[in-house]
């Protein structure tokens, strides 16, 4: 697969990166995604360190602790990491021409990804119920330092990540349907590799977000 592009007429072009277009295109697109999350995370860092106080984990809520449910999200993080593993397994399966393995692991990836989004929605609803929103309830604003700002950054960053996972799940469903129709072969499975790149990237972003938003 990693051969030079062949132009019509059978002539070989300049070797380029020796990566096929779709994969190269995805890498390039991910570079822009890195910048997008850099913008969001950069804003978070500037806002957080521009103020004096911030909600910290490991502190009771009444003493300025975080309103976030860390354990639930830690479990969610674990699931997303698992979905990366199943994604790797799916790709490994089709590299060996294992159609059954490909389908099984793709379905697992879709389910794990969808579960991640589902748990995130549950988390949002619970938080909103507690009054934690971009405009916090008065009770919460009284104990959580800079609650509005915390809410603004929290929902924007995790929300955009959740949107990315959701889009990923939709694309993954499409790839899975194609896999069930037998469109991928041992030789030709660029689609699986390309969606895999995106999936691992989204996973990686989450590990960073989880660390800086929930853990520190």
């Amino acid at each position: 697969m990693n051969e030079a592009i062949t132009l019509p007429g059978g002539v070989t072009a300049e070797p380029g990166m020796r990566i096929y277009n779709q994969k190269l295109g995805m890498w390039i697109f991910l570079a822009s995604e890195v910048m997008f999350f850099t913008g969001l995370i950069g804003a978070y860092i500037i806002l957080r360190f521009g103020t004096t106080a911030w909600a910290l984990p490991g502190v009771p809520l009444e003493e300025g602790g975080t309103p976030l449910a860390i354990n639930l999200t830690a479990f969610n993080t674990f699931m997303l990491i698992c979905s990366s593993v199943t994604m790797v397994k799916a790709f490994a399966a089709i590299e060996h021409g294992d159609q059954k393995g490909l389908r099984r692991y793709l379905v697992a990836t879709v389910l794990l990804g969808a579960a991640f989004v589902g748990i995130q929605v549950v988390e949002y609803i619970a938080l909103a119920h507690e009054g934690f929103l971009p405009r916090c309830s008065e009770e919460l604003a009284a104990v959580v330092p800079n609650c509005d700002l915390f809410g603004s950054t929290f929902y924007t960053m995790t929300g955009f990540h959740g949107t990315h996972v959701s889009i990923g799940v939709l694309c993954m469903i499409w790839v899975t349907v194609k896999a069930f129709r037998g469109k991928y072969t041992k030789e030709n499975h660029g689609g699986v590799e390309v969606i895999g790149l995106y999936w691992h990237f989204v996973d990686l972003v989450w590990i960073m977000l989880f660390t800086i938003v929930y853990l520190i």
């Binding site: 592009i5 072009a13 697109f29």
Partner: peptide, 15 residues
């Protein structure tokens, strides 16, 4: 941009 970059990297004619 994704298009232009990929095209320039990968699709230049021989030479």
């Amino acid at each position: 941009s994704v298009n232009y970059i990929t095209t320039v990297i990968n699709m230049r004619a021989p030479g």
